Amino acid sequence: MIQRFDVGPRLSEMAVHNGTAYLAGQVPNDASLDIRGQTREVLAAIDALLARAGTDKSKILMTQIFLTDLADFEGMNEVWDAWVTPGHTPPRATVQARLARPGWRIEVVVTAAC
């Protein structure tokens, strides 16, 4: 069985199947924030979705981070390092990419065990 969360016409925010949660790319609500603020918003959204699936950031299996400018790498990592659970840091890829909306500096995709 597949359980979908916040199903829309184009995508679902999360799908859970066989004990694994697959999150859609999470983006900031406030595009006027700097990279630290946008990263905090995105990570808070991830926390909320994972909680709805009955899991948390300590069970993240893989993370993909998309930044519009690699100059933001240090600021994003500052927030990321304070957020991740010590001893449970997941495998991660970070790449530069053009995102769908101007002002978005970061998008994060997470897969986690439930």
Rank of each mutant, 00 (worst) to 15 (best):
R92S: 13
I2T: 12
E107K: 11
R98F: 00
A51D: 13
P91D: 12
E13I: 02
D56N: 15
I65M: 03
A97L: 04
Q26T: 10
D69R: 14
V27M: 08
R105L: 10
D69W: 01
A48T: 13
W83H: 13
H88E: 10
A24S: 11
R36G: 14
D56W: 03
L49Q: 08
D30M: 02
A71H: 01
E78A: 09
W80S: 04
D56P: 01
A100K: 07
V79H: 03
A100T: 10
D47Q: 09
P9I: 08
T111S: 02
D69N: 15
G103L: 02
P86V: 10
P90S: 03
K57V: 15
M62I: 05
R40F: 00
T55Q: 10
S58K: 14
W80C: 03
R52N: 11
A48L: 08
S58H: 10
V79L: 01
V27T: 13
T111E: 02
A15W: 07
P9K: 10
D69F: 02
S32L: 05
K59H: 15
D47G: 07
V16Y: 02
P86G: 11
L33C: 06
V108Q: 05
A93V: 02
P90L: 01
R98D: 10
M62D: 14
E41I: 03
I65R: 05
R36M: 11
Q38C: 05
G75H: 11
V110D: 06
G54A: 09
V110E: 03
L33M: 09
Q38A: 04
L11P: 00
G75V: 04
E107V: 04
P28W: 02
S58G: 15
G37S: 01
T111Q: 07
G103M: 02
T111P: 00
C114Y: 03
G8M: 07
V42E: 04
K59G: 03
H17F: 07
K57C: 14
P28Y: 03
Q3D: 13
E78N: 00
D6N: 09
Q26P: 01
C114F: 01
A71T: 03
R10T: 05
P90Y: 01
Y22V: 11
